[in-house]
Design a protein around this nucleic acid. Sequence first.
DNA 1: TTACTGTGCACC
DNA 2: GTTCCGC
DNA 3: GCGGAACGTGCACAGTAA
Length: 856
Amino acid sequence: MSKRPPQSTPSSTPKAKKSKNSGKGQLQLDSFFGSPSKRGPSSTSSAIGQKTLPVPIDVDALDDDGATQTSMRRPALPPAPASPARQAQPSAVDGASGTPRKAIFVFGAKVVEPEKLTFHPIDSDPVFYDPHAQPWTPTGAPYSFLAHTFTTLSQTRSRIAIINSLTNTLRTILQRHPPSLLPALYLLSNSLSPAYIGIELGIGSSVISKAIQQVSGLSAAALKQLYTTTGDVGDVAFEAKSKVRTLVPHPPLTIQHVYDSLLKISASKGQGAAKAKERIVEKLLVAGSGEEVRFLVRTLTLNLRVGAVRTSILTALARAFVLHGPPGNSSAGGGHSGSPYASNGLLQRIQPLPTDNKKKGSEDAAREELKVLFTGAEGLIKQVYVRHPCYDDIVHALLDHDLSHLADRVPLSVGIPLHPTLGSPTRSLDEIYERLGDLSFSAEFKYDGQRAQIHAERGEHRKVSTRIFSRHLEDMTTKYPDVVLLVEELLQLSPSISSFILDAEIVASDPTTEELKSFQELSNRARKDVQLSDIKVAVSVFVFDLLYLNGESYLQRTFRERRQALKPNFPPHSPANATLARLRHVESCESDEGQMAVQEFWERALESRCEGLMVKVLDYEPVEPGEGAKFKQGTKSRKKVLPATYEPDKRTSAWLKLKKDYVDTIGDSLDLIPIGAWYGNGRKASWWSPILLGLWDPETAKPVAVCKCMSGFTDVFYKSLLERYLVNSDTCSQQPEWDADFGGFRPDVYFRASEVWEIRGADITESPVSVAARGLVSESRGLSLRFPRFMKVRVDKGVEQASTPSFLASLWRKQQKAPTGTSGGVDDGDLIDADVEESDEFDEEEESDSEEGLDA
DNA sequence: TTACTGTGCACC
DNA sequence: GTTCCGC
DNA sequence: GCGGAACGTGCACAGTAA
Ligand SMILES: Nc1ncnc2c1ncn2[C@@H]1O[C@H](COP(=O)(O)O)[C@@H](O)[C@H]1O
């Protein structure tokens, strides 16, 4: 077999440069080719928020008004820049329309022909905006145009360049074929619909692999080889297809068609779905040419890796509209004073300028003006999006109405999830005080469950409709009928409440004692269409925020105010049936109670089966007059102050989190032996990643695999690994040359056990794959590590001093110990358990201790 | 019908 | 989920 | 500090084989 990446060329530099990469829906390498697998998909159909959005995005409607809209949209007309057509770009850009390109615009990093500058207020860019281009009718915007954008994006990491390219792309589509804007946004963001609609492709490695084989005629082995080399399935497809001669030219793909094909893939379900999906994929691959194929496959693979996912797109969308002007404006540019759009006059004051020098006085003033418009529109669009994350609604509003009405037309809505506030990691309480200075804050238990954004509203006859959304905005209402019931009871008890949005954590808990259970137990719940009667894992709902109440948004209120409204309106509640969901409030401690109290609270959190603390600023921090940004004063660090409002568009991580595994002195680490690895993907192609790690089992005198690890390594470290583990050397082999128990892990290559690394994790888990410590706590399953990451090399340790299965088992037992307090309790003294040991020495048998679980 | 297994996708 | 990197 | 990109674990589901 052909593997090849990190081999030879010691000290080689990874090829990483070329691509930017990627994302997350990873394909399983192993299955990518090799296997005879097939298997179908599982798609989900959508449940929709009561508020709207036709389930399948309403594509047809777009088609309908397409033509008309197109014709009414006229580009702004700055004086034509008399620049020669740009032939140089082979591209795609023009291909489909047949319009010779005249104006260009370039800038960005790599512009080669300075004389080509065209009028473009924001700098040059390889994706040209041509104010005189003809509409893309009747066919619609060509996919090759997007492919060209993708190619351009993937050649730089500069945010500025990325945003410029995106802006020109969107502006161009807006000008030449507005109906393509929406599908273009979905393709650019590598999604099919808002998350809460729940449209999934339902294809994975097997379908894509087979389609590529089919279309290219190459064998699975050949493709695997390409994959190993490139670390990107899209690149594989591109290479594979480039070897194929196409005899019959295909009509060009359009953006709309590609998007529709994706919807078709996701709509195909049931028997034979896999085949049907595969056929659609094949058609796309056949019809695509050149770069299109690369990006089609990356799209299908949910792995666009182009350096733009969300924020950049929103920024560009805002700019494109500012430049394009208001709807229905045939003379371009909005422009009266106070308009959010750029006027023609303003645009004209910005001359094409050579990329290398952006100077000039009056022009600077114009650019300054434009920048102000940009900033305003960007802030607006981001805010609207975060509160109502739906491109359909936003685009429709933008196409039909003035920017200044956007917030009203696309408001925070019950039934549509908003983006959640997150927490950024901190290393200690000291760091928290350091960052917050003397701001008042509340520290809360950080429960180990699942985020839930709960929406409810009374409809006709006061009938309650409830939706529950996950952290990633998926609709999981049907997973929690018990919580839905809880909500109904709450509303029965509080007749004056007509609607609300709560932020909460759902945690598995014992139905009788309410003892908190682990995340792993929560994850045993069924996910689809759960019936009340077959719920096996009872939960508590710990509410911590109130975002909307009785028709009113609370997002701009301070946390102190939101919490003050939360407590009386949503008191704790336990349904008569104890196996149903309970409503609880998170435990909290205020900074006013003093540093000592906070310290004790943190210790209590750790003893209560919580991950740690979540720390939230309570009050609005006044800004010094004349000061632009809000900075904390006091310490020299001058970090931006955290907002007390719920506005993730301004600061996604407005809270601070402190978890035990972030703290050096506590938290478990293991000393593990690298015993194998896989070929990395994307940015890490040509490096070993992830790495397979093992314990040392003194009984068998060999390593036993425990987990994979890919986090915590620096690029420099990766490079050094290549030298230490050169494939086909005496430290690294494609065969399992050195005896070890690999359990269910099948790495691409095997390492000779020779070093020991300190690996930190958050928890020990029971694993279906690992066989580490199997027999010690479970006969069938081994133990593994949650959130493993590399800390450092233990140069002082030999392989035989690595952590052992019995040590791992002891950590597991310690973790299973009952918490000292229960969730409702107020009292309970606590001692700080000093018994958390570092893994230095092995095998420390824990003192077992009897469960204690309940108390008043 | 049942049991197995691969796999997509979702949490964390 | 964690972490690293470039901007 | 942001935005993005690498990937971790493990579940229930859906298809297939029995
Ligand atoms: N009291 C709390 N406040 C906010 N988030 C919490 C709280 N308790 C648990 N969480 C969870 O912690 C998550 C953020 O932590 P992390 O995912 O580690 O960054 C949130 O998405 C919540 O699901």
